[in-house]
Amino acid sequence: MIVCHCTQISDYDIKAAIDWMRAADPETIITPGKIYHALGKRADCGGCMPLFLDTMRGCDNLAVPPILRGLKANRTGVSHEGRRKGHRVSQRSATV
């Protein structure tokens, strides 16, 4: 089935690209942009994106790699991105 008429991408092409990317790097996060790039194409009008995403979600190899699962859960209580308190100039006390 043709998923993207502008670039002639089929559901088979999407599944094959996902399988190829997963085999090449088991820990990669697969996005629509990476699939287009792997197929040597670029998104055009974007009208296919809902069907494109549904086709991606239907693939068994799309899951987030186990090593990357739960990263946000491990950061509970951390909202400062690892920076120390008062990292902005406006938050520092002026010492004159």
Rank of each mutant, 00 (worst) to 15 (best):
Y12R: 11
C48P: 07
T55P: 06
R75F: 07
M56F: 03
A63S: 13
I18D: 10
S79T: 15
T7P: 04
I29P: 00
D44F: 13
M56L: 00
A63M: 10
I67L: 14
R83E: 08
D25F: 04
T28V: 15
I35N: 01
G47C: 09
Q91V: 00
C4N: 07
C48K: 09
D13Y: 04
R92K: 15
I29W: 02
I35M: 03
A43Y: 06
L39M: 11
A43I: 12
P32D: 04
C6A: 15
I14N: 00
F52C: 06
L62T: 01
R88T: 07
H80W: 04
N61M: 11
R92A: 13
A73V: 00
C4I: 00
I35C: 04
A43V: 14
D60Q: 14
A94N: 11
L39D: 05
G77N: 10
H5D: 14
R57Y: 07
E27Y: 06
T31I: 05
S93K: 15
D44T: 13
I14F: 03
F52Q: 05
T76D: 13
R92F: 01
T7F: 01
K34F: 01
E81A: 12
E27C: 08
M21P: 02
E81G: 06
R84M: 10
H80N: 15
S93H: 14
R75S: 13
S10P: 00
T7K: 12
L53N: 06
L71C: 10
A24W: 00
S79L: 12
